[in-house]
Design a protein around this nucleic acid. Structure first.
Lengths: 327, 327
DNA sequence: CTCACACATGAGAGCGCTTCCATGGCAATA
DNA sequence: TATTGCCATGGAAGCGCTCTCATGTGTGAG
C-alpha cells in the first residue's frame, strides 16, 4: 500500500465524468455504451491504474470467479506431490474454458474447519477436495455441500471421484505373483486415507488366495519413508522377494533403500509402485507401477462441481499396470 | 446451491434474536458480548450451518486474508515442477504464522493481465510472483506494486528474490572442467526467463576462459526436452564429454536420453543438473547438481510481502555444488 | 411537425460483512 | 436516592462492485 490509495470504480467514473454504472458497463463489456463513454472510461482506467476487485465483484454479481482445490493433509509437504500438480493443471484448463481461475489451498488435518471456510466463500464457483477425510467434510454445513466434490473416496456426503485402488492393487500384486514372487511385502500409506485400506484389503486377499504370508509396513507416501521401509522389511523378513509400495515416491525410496543394502532389483527383489508419476520411467531400473488417469479424474471432478452435475455418489476410474524393469 | 440459500450473518442474527453487530462480535471474537448473546449466536451458527464469507469480510474489514502465489508460464504444466510445491509449502507456513491462507494461481504468458487482477484483489494480503516477466509485471499499476514481490530476477519494479544463477552455474561448470571435461554442452531453459541468460553467460565465460567451444541447446525445463536434447547434442557434437542442464528435470531427461543411446554416465559423458530436486539423489546414477535454498528464498519473499519490508531491489541466495555420481 | 422507438445514461438498491457511534441498563459510589 | 462509569447492544454507514429501472436523448416513420 505505502499510503497509495487503490483506485476504485468510483474514481474511474469521476475521472471519466460518467456514472459508476456506465463505467462498470464499459469495463465489463456488458450492456450498451457510446463510443465517447468507452474512450473516456478506458482512458481513466489506464490513467488511474484501475483494477477491479474480484471479491467485490463476486459479492455484487452473486457469482463465483474461482475454482478452489483444497488438499487435506497432515503436512503442507503434500503439495510437493506431483499428483497435486497434475490435478491443478487439469483443473486450470477446465476452469479456463469457463473463464474462472483456480486456486490451491492446504487444509491441515489438525484444522479441518478451514475447509468449511472455503466452501462458504461466495467468491468460489466450486470446491474440489483432494484426499478428503470425513471429519473435514463434516465441518461443511449441508447447505454448502452442493458446491463441493471430492477426489478420493471413502467419505460420504459429496460426489467423489477416484481411481479404483482395489483393482489397481490387484493388478500389480497379481503381476508379482505371476512372475513367480511369493514373499511379497507391501508399504501402505497414511492411516487416515480410506483408499489405503481398500488397497491393503486387496493385497491381503490375494495373499490369502495364494497361501502367502502378508507383510505390511506403514508408509506415508514419501520417498524417505520408502527407504526406511525397505530397511525394515529386509530386516524383519530377509527372504522377501518383492515389495509393493502404494505410491511411486515411496517405491523410489524403496529402490534407494534396497540399493544401499546391496540388494539387486529386480534380480533379488522386485519393486512395484503405484501412481505412475513422471519419474517412474526415469529411475534405474525403471519402475513397474500402475498408471492412474489423474487428468481424467480431475477433469471429471472439476466439471462436476462447475456444472453442478447431479448427484453421482462415487465414480471409479480404472488403474492399469505398467510393466517396466523393476518387476 | 441446489436451491438451498446460503445462510448469512443476517440470518444468524435474526435466529439468535440479536443485531447483526452483536452476531459479528461474537463470531469474530472481537468486542464485548454477554454470555447469553454468545450462546444464542453460536447456537444459531451451528443450527443454520453459517460460514462467514471471506470475500465480504475482506471487503468490509479492508484487510486481506490470503497470500497468493502466481506462477507465470507458457503452460499450466509449470505447476508440476516440484519447485513450485516447495515455494508453496514454505509460503503456507509463513502465512499460517500470520493467520492468513495461501493460494496458488497460474498466469499464462499469453494473458499477463491476469496478474494485475490478482494484485488488485483486496482479499489478498500479498502477491508473490514466481518466474516474473517484465510484460506481466507491467500490467500491474504502480499503485499496486507495493503488494507484490517476485521470486526470480531480471525484472524491475518490485523487490525480487532469487538464487544466484551466475555463480551457481559457475560452480557446476568449473567442477566439470576440474574433473577433466572439456567438451561441455549446456541445455538452457525457456527464452523468456531472464535468469536463463545469466546462467548461459556464466557458462560461455568459462568456456572462453578455458578455450573451449560452446555447445548450447535450448531447453524448457522438462524431462522430455532433456531426452531430446541429449539426442541432439550427441548427434551434432558426438565427442561431447559433459552435459550441464539448467534444471534437474531436464538433466534427468538427459540421463534417460543418453542411456537410450547406450552412452555411459559418467564414464563417457558427465551429466550435471541444477536445482537439487528430491529426485536428484534417487536417480541412477545419482545426479550431480547445484542445490538451491528454495525454502529460504520463498520465506524471504513471503515475509517481505506480508510485512511490507522496505524496498530491497534484488536479493540473491547462494547455490552450492552437490557432487554425486553423474559428474 | 409529431409520435414512437430505440439506445445511452444515472440514480439507487443491495451483495455480506465490519465497525463507529450513540444509547440503554446496570452496579458501584457518593 | 442521585450520580458516575462501564459494559452490552443496536443503528447505520460504509467496503467496491453489479444490475434493475426510470429517465433522457436522438433517430426515423407517419
Amino acid at each position: 500500500m505505502r499510503g497509495q490509495r487503490i483506485a476504485t470504480l468510483d474514481d474511474v467514473a469521476r475521472t471519466a465524468g460518467v456514472s459508476r454504472a456506465t463505467a462498470s458497463r464499459v469495463i465489463t463489456g456488458q450492456g450498451p455504451a457510446s463510443a465517447r463513454a468507452r474512450d473516456r472510461v478506458t482512458a481513466a482506467v489506464t490513467k488511474l491504474g484501475y483494477v477491479p476487485d474480484a471479491a467485490a465483484r463476486a459479492l455484487a454479481s452473486r457469482s463465483g470467479t474461482r475454482l478452489a482445490i483444497a488438499v487435506i493433509g497432515h503436512t503442507a509437504a503434500i503439495l510437493d506431490d506431483p499428483y497435486v500438480g497434475r490435478v491443478l493443471t487439469t483443473a486450470a484448463h477446465i476452469a479456463a474454458e469457463r473463464e474462472v481461475g483456480v486456486s490451491l489451498h492446504w487444509v491441515p488435518l489438525s484444522a479441518p474447519a478451514a475447509l468449511a471456510g472455503l466452501a462458504g466463500s461466495r467468491g468460489l464457483s466450486g470446491l474440489v477436495v483432494v484426499n478428503p477425510t470425513q471429519p473435514a467434510l463434516e465441518t461443511v454445513p449441508r447447505s454448502l455441500r452442493g458446491r463441493v466434490v471430492a477426489i478420493g473416496v471413502g467419505t460420504s456426503g459429496v460426489p467423489s471421484f477416484d481411481v479404483d485402488n482395489r483393482s489397481g492393487t490387484d493388478g500389480v500384486v497379481r503381476h508379482l505373483v505371476t512372475t513367480g514372487r511369493r514373499r511379497i511385502a507391501m508399504v501402505t500409506g497414511p492411516a487416515w486415507l480410506p483408499c489405503v485400506d481398500r488397497a491393503r484389503d486387496a493385497y491381503q486377499q490375494i495373499m490369502n488366495e495364494t497361501g502367502c504370508e502378508t507383510r505390511v509396513v506403514r508408509g506415508d507416501f514419501t520417498a524417505a519413508r520408502g527407504a526406511a521401509a525397505a530397511a525394515e522389511i529386509m530386516t524383519r523378513w530377509p527372504d522377501t522377494d518383492a515389495v509393493f509400495a502404494l505410491s511411486d515416491l515411496t517405491a523410489l525410496g524403496v529402490l534407494d533403500g534396497l540399493h544401499a543394502r546391496g540388494v539387486r532389483v529386480p534380480a533379488d527383489v522386485a519393486v512395484a509402485g503405484f501412481d505412475d508419476i513422471a519419474f517412474a520411467c526415469l529411475s534405474r531400473p525403471a519402475l513397474t507401477t500402475s498408471t492412474h488417469p489423474v487428468e481424467e479424474i480431475a477433469a471429471a471432478a472439476a466439471k462436476a462441481v462447475l456444472d453442478r452435475t447431479g448427484d453421482t455418489p462415487a465414480t471409479f476410474f480404472p488403474s492399469t499396470l505398467v510393466v517396466r524393469e523393476s518387476a
